[in-house]
Every structure is written in structure tokens, then in C-alpha cells.
Design a protein around this nucleic acid. Structure first.
Lengths: 362, 362
DNA sequence: TGGCCTTGCAGAAACGTGCCTGTCAATGCG
DNA sequence: CGCATTGACAGGCACGTTTCTGCAAGGCCA
């Protein structure tokens, strides 16, 4: 009664604590906590009264105190690999943006928020945030951060099959090898005699699996491999590599590019050498970008379905956090999708001068 | 002495607390805290000893407890507007990705981490995370989240001039009106007689300012406005709007598109109507994407410099959080940059058949 | 030798919750 | 009427830090 609504000591003047609510409502702290959290056995009248008083005071429970008490923060880490000082590379923009968007939505729907944490962060930042678990995108072979998180007992779910013996809780990935084989078959069906590859010099799993699948395919069908590798994180290098590939004496008549900008890179290089697409050169690239629906000609793309991956990864992680014996498998393979457009069809289904009024794709 | 290294009660078995470190090192809790945080007056020998013991036990301080005690969490919110259920729209991908990347780097360098929080989040998520401050991207007129954050006394810095009388701590923005006027002058200099605009139906500040600047320019030079507005968050609608714009009886001979995909949309529409770019139609669009360096022809783009914006926003916010009487202005205008390419030059400086070996742009 | 300052550390009070335990009245039952 | 049971709340401890206050030991000076 004699206690004022403001907290007794030098507490933040703007914010009311649970004590203030209890005092204002004329009940105890326990009753306030139970009423707001829907626990305990209280008559509805008391519950409503407490909630009303809390609203009137603008009471917001302290997230830090709740986290300290319950051990759950409601925060999920989104760990991205870094190149140089910057998180995630330029070529992964569209993929990462879509994946992060889906992951954010999925987390939000279950009451969690996402924290962006580059894998090479300063250690003090990592230990300064209380995480319930982490999503790791494409963990590298010996990522020290991931193994430490696992050692702390935190659930870790990775986007991309973990390299080596990294002990993640679960993972989600595409079947990159099957996707590459599909594309190569698709190009061969369209009449390609010699298929080239635009690949990367990095050691990540995606690049590695895709390249080795290409090499095995070449061996199977008896074609000499024709490929150029370049550092994918350099936005300029792709154009140069595409140019080199088409300048070779054993110039391919079809190319698959592993990275997002390879489509425009290859189109530009083809123009420089006077090659018509698709008549002289078939093109497919892996991309989530919609620009390839409107290029000249439209380019066939492989989508890795980042939205499905982002959603699945978060669901698995939250299942693990909440200890629900998940009925979902801990290793999920998300199917890819090939958007076949003019650039990979010898007989283009429509001429370029037809004036359609509606867009061709959603 | 008699106390084991594991915490006395039912604490998490895997993690050691500060008590365990103190017991193992034979010192008090205070000494451990001071030694690890570089405070107090301790001889170097004690400091080193404590740090060694802490390392050996794998001690990680509890972020929740530290936050509760100090009132600082080291977390910064990154609030994005949502369209439908999903955070940030498709057309903002490249801008948002670059901006978020720069913001993440800048925050990290100062010991902070970013939390992605859509503006329309469930309330319980917002109150479940202890934020030191928030970055708001393009706050809408009456965003309830922002005003509540301000009312709680949290620093709020917005990317984009706040609409109405939103009381943000600081903001960073481009001079969108000047940028539009620059582009229109640039197109007029290149010989455009009737300049059209591809704009949006949304009410955000960027669209509003850009459109009104266009209308004023038209009035000044005595040209009838020629524009099409479409819902920018719909990835298909842009292509349709571009088609409509070029199908009009008063077809423009130059177009500026406010959104990222408008360049390819306009190129595709021009092809459908047999218009040559830049001979029959000049094209400029606002985009952060590098694909426009390699389209046919390359398209002139306006960059809003999202990296500089992301960095500036975070610096201002952390300055406000740490109470440093910042010498930076609280209202910063970041200059835009126009990458002039073939699509907006009547006399293209290079022919399309020249075979350059090096990429033209970084 | 006593008073005072400095050094090196320990005790303990918060920070704001959640929850376990305890108290008191009302009720049911034989 | 005695006793167990249940509803409705209050008290208080614990979560793991940070930090304020304090205390003993030793050196310095008068």
C-alpha cells in the first residue's frame, strides 16, 4: 500500500516491473506472474483484473530476467560464412535473401526471432547473446564456431550437408549431384554434344559435389570435361571465366553455370563471340533470380528452393529446442526445380516477336 | 574447498558458472569477474591465473545474467516492413541484402549483433527479446511498433525519412527527389523528348517522393506525365506495367523505373514492340543488381548506396545507445550514384561486337 | 607506535522473473 | 464436530552476473 508504483531503487524510471503491477493490483508477485502466463489456479476475475492493470501500466516483462530464469531466450542464430570481412558473398544474395526470409517467417510463427551471426564473429559477440539454437548455412570443414556450439549442448541445424564429421543435430540439403545430372541429361537431350561447366575455386560442399558429379557424368558418357573455375565471391571474375570458357579451342556447345550471375555472364560472352543462344550455345545456370525470365533469350535456371530449405531448417531446429520428439527426419533432402526456358531448347517454343500481354511465369 | 566444481543445485550440467571458476581458482567471485572484465585492481599474476582456469573449465558467462545486471544486451533490432506474411518484398532483395550485410558488419565491429524483426511480428516476440535499440527500414506512417519502442525509451534510427511526426532518434536517407531530377535531366540531355515513369502503388516515402519529383519536373519542362503504377511487391506486375507503358498511344521515348526488376521488364517489353535500346527507347532503373552490367544492352542504373546507408544507420544507433554525444549529424543524406551504361546514351560508346577480355566495371 | 593511504581481495546486495512451498479460509464427509 | 481436501493467494528462493562496500595487511610518515 505504502509502496509507490515506481520501483523502489534506481530502476529505470520509464518501465514498470512486475512488483509495480502487483502493488497496483493489490495482489502478490506470484499472482501477477501466474495471471499473465496463464498458469496457477486463479479465478477469471483476478486474472482479468491483473491483466488490465498490467496493460494500464504498460508493463512489459523483462526478456533478460525471463531468459535467466527459464533458460530459454527465444533467439535462434543464423550463421553465415564470411568472405573477407563481409557476411555472405555477393553471388549468394538471392539465395540467402530468400532463405533468410523464409526462415524469419517460420521462426516468427513459432515465437522465435533470428539473430544474424557471421561465423567469423568476434568471440565476445557470440558469447554475449543467449541462443536457444543455431542454423548454420553451409558449414565449412573445421568451423570452430559450430563445434563449440555443439559442445555447449546447443542444437545446431545446418543448411547443407555438414562436411566431414561435424556433429550437427540435423541438416537439410538438396541432392546437388542428382540436380547436376538432370541438367546435363536435359542439355544432352536438347542436342548438346560437348557440355561445359562454370564452377568455383572454393571448397564448399555445393561446389565440390556439383563439380564431381559433372566429372563423373563426363566419364560415363565419354566426354572430355570442359570447365573453368573461378573465385565465386568476386563479382567480376564470373564474366572473365565465362569469356575464357567460350574462347577455348574445345569450345562447348552448352554450358551449365553453378552461380547466380553466370547466366548474364554467359549471355554477354556469347554475344561477344557471335554465338546465338540457343542455336549455337545452350545455357543453364543455378539461380533464384527472376531476371532470367525476361533476358534475351530467357535463361533456363535451376532453383534450389531456398524458401523450403529455410522453413525446414527452422522447423527442425525448433523441434530440437523444444525437445519434441520430432516426427520429421533429421536429414531432409529438398528437391530442386528446373525452370526450362528458351536458352536450353534447340527449338524455341515461341518466337521472340510475338507480343504476349500477360507475363509467362509466376 | 568442499564445494565441487559442478554447481550446487540443478544447474545445467554442461556449463560452468562463475562460482565454479572462483572455487577452482581459489579466489572470490568478485575477483573472477574483475579479472575477466579487466576491471578492479588486481596483480597481473592473479588475472592470468583466473583467465587460465576459466579457459580450462570452458567458462562462458551467461548473456542473460549479464544483460539483466547491466541493462545492455548487445542486440540491435533490424525492423523490416512486411507485405502479407513475409518480411521485405521481393523487389527490395538486392537493396535489403546489401544494406543488411553492411549493417551486420558495422554492428559486429562494435560488438553488437542484429536481430531480424518484422514490423508486424506477434507482440510476444517483440517483448521476448531485450533490444538496446532498433533500426527501422522505411517506417510507415503510423507504425505502432516504432512508436511503442520510442515510448519505451529505446533509441530508434530509421533508414528513410520518417513519415509524419514519427519521433525517431535519427535517420539516414538519400535525396530521392534530387536523384530523380538528375536522371530526368540526364535522359533529356541524351535526347529524350517524352520521359515515362514506372512507379508503385504503395504509399511508402520512396515511391511518394520519387513520383512527386517526376510530376514536378514534368510541369517545369512542360511535358505531360506518362506513367504506370503497379503493386511493387508483386513480382509479375512489373512486366505487365512495363508492357502497358510502351503500349500507350503517347508512348515515351525514355523510361525511368523505380524498382529493381524494371530494367529487364522494360528490355523485354521493348523487344516485344520492336523498339531498339537505346536508339528508340532510353532506359534507366533504380537497382543494386550487377546483372545490368551484362544485359543486352547494359542498362544505366541508379544506386542508392545501401552499404553506406546500412553502415551509417548502425553507427548512429550505437552512438545513441552508448550515450556518446555523437559528432555525427542525426539526419544524414547519402548521395546516390548513377552508373551510366549503354541504355541511356544515344551514341553508344562501344559497339556490341567488340570482344573485351576484362570486365568493364567493379 | 599510531594514523592514513594503497593494494588485493571477499561479502553481499541487487537486476526482474518463475516457481516451489506455505498459509488461511471454505467446503465435503463420516 | 474433527479432519482431509481444495481453492486462492503470499513469501521467498534461485537463476548468474556486476558492482558497491568493506576489510585486512603492509608501507609511509610524523
Amino acid at each position: 500500500m505504502s509502496r509507490a508504483e515506481t520501483s523502489r531503487r534506481g530502476s529505470r524510471p520509464g518501465r514498470a516491473g512486475i512488483r509495480d503491477v502487483a502493488a497496483a493490483a493489490g495482489v502478490s508477485i506470484t499472482t501477477v506472474s501466474d495471471a499473465l502466463n496463464g498458469k496457477g489456479r486463479l479465478p477469471d476475475a483476478t486474472r482479468r483484473h491483473v491483466r488490465e492493470v498490467a496493460d494500464r501500466l504498460g508493463y512489459r516483462p523483462s526478456a533478460a530476467a525471463r531468459t535467466l530464469r527459464t533458460g530459454k531466450s527465444g533467439l535462434i542464430g543464423l550463421t553465415v560464412t564470411t568472405y573477407g570481412d563481409e557476411p555472405f558473398t555477393f553471388t549468394e544474395f538471392a539465395y540467402f535473401a530468400e532463405m533468410a526470409r523464409a526462415a524469419t517467417s517460420a521462426a516468427l510463427a513459432r515465437g522465435y526471432a533470428l539473430v544474424i551471426l557471421p561465423a567469423t564473429s568476434r568471440h565476445d559477440v557470440w558469447s554475449n547473446v543467449a541462443l536457444d539454437g543455431t542454423v548454420v548455412i553451409d558449414p565449412s570443414d573445421q568451423d570452430p564456431v559450430v563445434s563449440e556450439l555443439v559442445r555447449q549442448g546447443l542444437p545446431v541445424v545446418s543448411d547443407g550437408r555438414p562436411a566431414g564429421t561435424l556433429p550437427v543435430t540435423a541438416w537439410v540439403d538438396n541432392d546437388h549431384e542428382a540436380a547436376v545430372l538432370d541438367i546435363l541429361d536435359h542439355l544432352a537431350d536438347a542436342g548438346a554434344r560437348r557440355i561445359g561447366l562454370l564452377t568455383g575455386t572454393t571448397t564448399d560442399t555445393y561446389t565440390h559435389l556439383s563439380t564431381s558429379a559433372y566429372l563423373r557424368w563426363c566419364e560415363r558418357v565419354g566426354q572430355d570435361p570442359v570447365y573453368e573455375a573461378y573465385p565465386a565471391h568476386d563479382p567480376c571474375a564470373g564474366a572473365v571465366a565465362a569469356d575464357r570458357l567460350l574462347a577455348r579451342p574445345d569450345r562447348p556447345d552448352a554450358v551449365y553455370g553453378l552461380f547466380d550471375p553466370n547466366g548474364t555472364d554467359l549471355l554477354a560472352a556469347a554475344r561477344r563471340y557471335g554465338l546465338r543462344v540457343p542455336e549455337d550455345l545452350l545455357i543453364v545456370c543455378c539461380s533464384e533470380s527472376t531476371v532470367y525470365a525476361n533476358t534475351e533469350p530467357p535463361v533456363t535456371t535451376l532453383s534450389l528452393k531456398p524458401r523450403r530449405i529455410g522453413t525446414a531448417v527452422v522447423q527442425l531446429l525448433i523441434d530440437a529446442i523444444e525437445g519434441a520428439e520430432s516426427d520429421r527426419p533429421v536429414e531432409q533432402v529438398i528437391p530442386t526445380e528446373l525452370f526450362v526456358r528458351t536458352s536450353s531448347q534447340r527449338r524455341p517454343p515461341r518466337t521472340t516477336v510475338s507480343p504476349p500481354r500477360t507475363p509467362e511465369e509466376n
